[in-house]
Design a protein around this nucleic acid. Structure first.
Length: 198
DNA sequence: TAGGCCATCTGGTCCT
DNA sequence: AGGACCAGATGGCCTA
């Protein structure tokens, strides 16, 4: 269906990144632990010279290929992250969400949408009226945060459970006023999220 | 200049 | 055996 969800795609047709694109990274010398490398080189010198050098060439080629795959894999991951950013509400200043912010924002966003549906269903069941899906007043019924702003988390496995790791989310609601974003959520067109609420 | 974020490299582990 | 996945290390860039 959607290319975004082709998680097992390893052919990377969608993301034909090459080493040329990564010239910035490849310029860097790849010597994480010079001392360890020197040790390893000493060990290698003791071994048989010629066959080792060819083995090292093979090993190096394998490493280069693995590096390339890893690079592509991370590019795939980043592209998926970009796709996720694309379906999340945009901030007014168009600042790009960081990776962790994107994930946490998406988590909270999904939760908010779920709550919207749940509350709408509840109201529809009470009154028999058709659900007021678009009424902002429904969104005001956000979970009331505790003193730490996170007591509403993990209240069970019900659909009303909220983002579980809000305490560790820099952008997650930490104070009651942070929930004002729920009042700003027009069910169509989530464009008015305030910064810092994800 | 310190700290955050990021891309890349690398070696280890697991899976096919 | 080779590829995917993962986590740690490293260095560059940017911003407060």
């Amino acid at each position: 269906m959607d290319s975004v969800f082709s998680d097992t795609d390893t052919s990377c047709d969608l993301f034909p990144h090459t080493d040329d694109e990564d010239s910035r990274g490849s310029v860097r010398d790849a010597s994480p632990q010079p001392e360890q490398q020197q040790l390893q080189q000493k060990k290698r010198r003791r071994g048989r010279g010629r066959s080792d050098s060819t083995a090292q060439v093979v090993k190096k080629n394998r490493r280069l290929k693995a590096n390339d795959r890893e690079r592509n894999r991370m590019h795939n991951l980043n592209d998926a992250l970009d796709a996720l950013r694309g379906v999340l509400p945009a901030f007014p200043d168009e600042t790009k969400l960081t990776k962790i912010e994107t994930l946490r924002f998406a988590h909270n966003y999904i939760w908010a949408l779920s709550e919207t549906i749940r509350i709408a269903d509840l109201q529809a069941g009470k009154t028999g009226d058709p659900p007021l899906l678009l009424s902002p007043s429904l969104l005001v019924e956000a979970p009331s945060p505790g003193s730490d702003g996170c007591s509403w988390s993990s209240s069970g496995s019900s659909s009303s459970s909220s983002p579980a790791y809000c305490a560790s989310s820099p952008g997650s609601p930490s104070a009651p006023e942070d929930y004002s974003f729920l009042q700003q959520v027009p069910v169509f067109g989530f464009r008015s999220f305030a910064p810092g609420i994800y």
